[in-house]
Amino acid sequence: MEFPVPVALAELVPRLPAGPGWWYEIKLDGHRTVLWRLEDTVQLQARSGRDVTASWMDLALAGMELPSGVLLDGEAVVVVEGRISFEAAQSRAASGPARARKLAEEHPALYVVWDVLQLAGTDVRWRPYEWRRAAMLDLLAGLPLPSPIQAVSATDDVEVAQAWYESLEPSGVEGVVAKLGASPYRPGRSSVWKKVRHAETVDGEVVGFTGAPLRPRSLAVRLPDGRTAVSQRLGARLAAQVAAYLVTAPVAGRARTASGDPYTVAETGLMVEVLAGTTRHAVVTVTRLR
């Protein structure tokens, strides 16, 4: 398997599916991260495919306890005062190596694993979810305790999953993901994975910006239906976070959306969260980086 690996994505639905064969996992509010345990090192990959090892070096060091040839999919999260903090994870992801080390000392990260894609160098993505989860649990059971690498909570009881959804939001749980027990790991979005979230949002890919890289006014976002739209003006904090990526992003000229809005094309590798209620219009509202 070659770096970076394309990740599986869940379809956003209004309610949890029920019936035989469904499993349910807690959806945490952090950064999607793939962990590669190579022969002599550990490499971490963001959902976009970027190498983010330097941002999560504490997790990379913990990953050295795994056997070589393992590839895991999960979420890097940071707990602050007993609550999972997306803002803390975002700060870590946007920091340089020195700043990331300092933040790791203040609030060490956890890596919550929900899937295994490779074992002993063998691709197991074609195996059913139930098989992969059992293999993942066996693998993680061999780690020395305490370990920041932990398995996500899962159940095959829809009532338990619904109780998680209704009660755990204050602790930083973003929602619940449902997966068919017989399903393989399929890169891209698939109906065999479904998610319900407290926030009505969708994920979009940043394909450009307006303004200057150091001071972007708005983002050009490719939405799940394939359309590209220019966002509303970014707030100061979000603009500063995006600028850290735009200053090094390759620029590929100018373009216009289907509605005629001009923007600078850039290969950012960034994903953003967009309010679902705005995506039917030409202008969308970006809430945060993913």
Rank of each mutant, 00 (worst) to 15 (best):
G172A: 00
V177T: 01
W36A: 11
A239N: 06
L12D: 09
V177D: 02
A239C: 01
W164C: 03
W126H: 14
E65W: 06
P146T: 04
V286Q: 11
S147C: 00
A10I: 10
V173C: 10
A154C: 13
F3S: 02
R256A: 02
T268D: 14
G211K: 10
S153V: 15
P213Y: 08
E159G: 12
L103E: 04
V160E: 14
D73H: 13
R101V: 00
W114Y: 15
L71S: 01
A163N: 08
G19H: 07
S85R: 03
E267M: 02
A212D: 12
A88M: 01
Y111A: 05
H107N: 09
Q90V: 02
P6V: 02
H198I: 07
V207P: 02
K194P: 00
S259T: 10
G49I: 11
V112K: 05
W131H: 00
D156A: 05
A98M: 15
E166P: 03
L145H: 08
G63P: 08
A182N: 10
S147Y: 03
P148I: 10
L72M: 13
R222I: 13
A220L: 15
E159D: 15
V265I: 07
L140S: 08
A135T: 10
W36E: 08
E81H: 05
D225Y: 04
K195E: 11
Y129D: 00
S259H: 10
D73P: 12
A258Q: 07
A258T: 12
Q241F: 01
L110F: 14
A135D: 07
D156G: 01
R92S: 06
S231H: 01
R133T: 04
E2Y: 00
L66C: 13
Y245K: 05
V206Y: 15
A10P: 06
P224K: 05
R47K: 14
D123A: 08
L72K: 06
T257P: 13
W131C: 00
L238T: 07
Q162N: 14
L270T: 04
V152I: 13
A178E: 06
V152L: 01
F209R: 05
F3Y: 10
H281R: 15
G74F: 02
S153M: 07
S95A: 15
A178S: 06
R254T: 13
V196L: 13
R254L: 13
V286P: 02
L9H: 13
V284N: 06
G49Y: 06
P20W: 04
I26A: 05
Y24S: 13
L140N: 08
K195R: 12
A141H: 07
A266Q: 05
E273A: 12
R37W: 07
L219I: 03
A141R: 15
F3A: 01
E166G: 10
L16S: 09
Y263L: 06
L110Y: 11
V113Y: 04
A255P: 12
V230L: 15
P146M: 04
R217M: 15
T201V: 15
E200I: 00
Q90L: 01
W23H: 11
D138T: 09
L38T: 11
W126S: 14
V206R: 10
P170S: 09
G82W: 10
